[in-house]
Simulated assay, not measured.
Amino acid sequence: MPQDVNEPEPWEYTLGIPNDPRAVTVCRRTLRLILTIHGLIRLTDVAELLATELISNAVCHAKGPAALRLRWRDGVLRIGAWDGDPDPPQPTTAFANFADMAESESGRGLALVQACADVWGWYPLPRDGTGGKYVWCDLGIA
C-alpha cells in the first residue's frame, strides 16, 4: 500500500541517559526537537507529558542508567522507557477525581499515561542482556 505523501517515513531514536533527574528535561527537549523536525509538532504537548512520566519513573525507581526510545510507524508514535529494574511498573489505584490527581505529589505518572495514551504496556527484558524492563505507550495521530 503506498504511503500518504503527508505521512512521515518510519523512524526510530534511542537516547541513553544517566540516573539523574536532570536527564528528564534532556529527554523532553530532545523529544520536542525530534517531533518538530519530523513535522509532528501537533503531538508534542501530549508526547512530552507521556515521555516525562515514563522517564521520571525510570529515573526515580531504578538505580542505573535508562533510555528513552521514540518510534514512528504507520501513524503511531511509540514512546518507551527502558530501565534496569526488572520489577513491573505499579499503576496506582484510581484517583477519585482529577483534582485529587492534580494535588498528589506522587503516584500519578502511570495514571496520566493511562489517561492520555491510546494504549500502554510493559515487558521484562532478558537477564542475559541488560535486563530490566521496557514501559511503552502509543499515541496516534488522530
Rank of each mutant, 00 (worst) to 15 (best):
D4S: 15
D4G: 00
P8H: 05
P10S: 11
P10D: 11
Y13E: 14
G16Y: 12
I17L: 15
D20G: 14
D20R: 15
P21G: 11
R22H: 10
V24L: 09
V24G: 05
T25D: 07
V26G: 06
R28L: 05
T30R: 09
T30M: 12
L31D: 01
G39V: 10
G39Y: 08
L40Y: 12
L40K: 14
R42H: 12
R42C: 06
L43N: 09
T44K: 00
A47M: 09
L49W: 03
A51Q: 04
A51Y: 04
A51C: 15
I55D: 01
S56N: 04
S56W: 06
S56F: 03
A58S: 15
C60Y: 00
H61A: 01
A62W: 09
A66K: 06
A66S: 15
A67S: 14
W72D: 02
V76L: 08
R78F: 01
R78K: 13
I79L: 08
I79T: 01
I79Y: 02
A81R: 07
W82Q: 06
D85P: 00
P86K: 03
D87M: 10
D87L: 11
T92C: 01
D100Q: 14
M101K: 13
A102W: 04
E105Y: 12
R108T: 04
A111W: 08
A117H: 04
L125W: 03
P126I: 08
D128T: 10
D128Q: 14
D128M: 12
Y134V: 00
W136N: 01
W136M: 02
D138G: 08
G140S: 15
G140W: 07
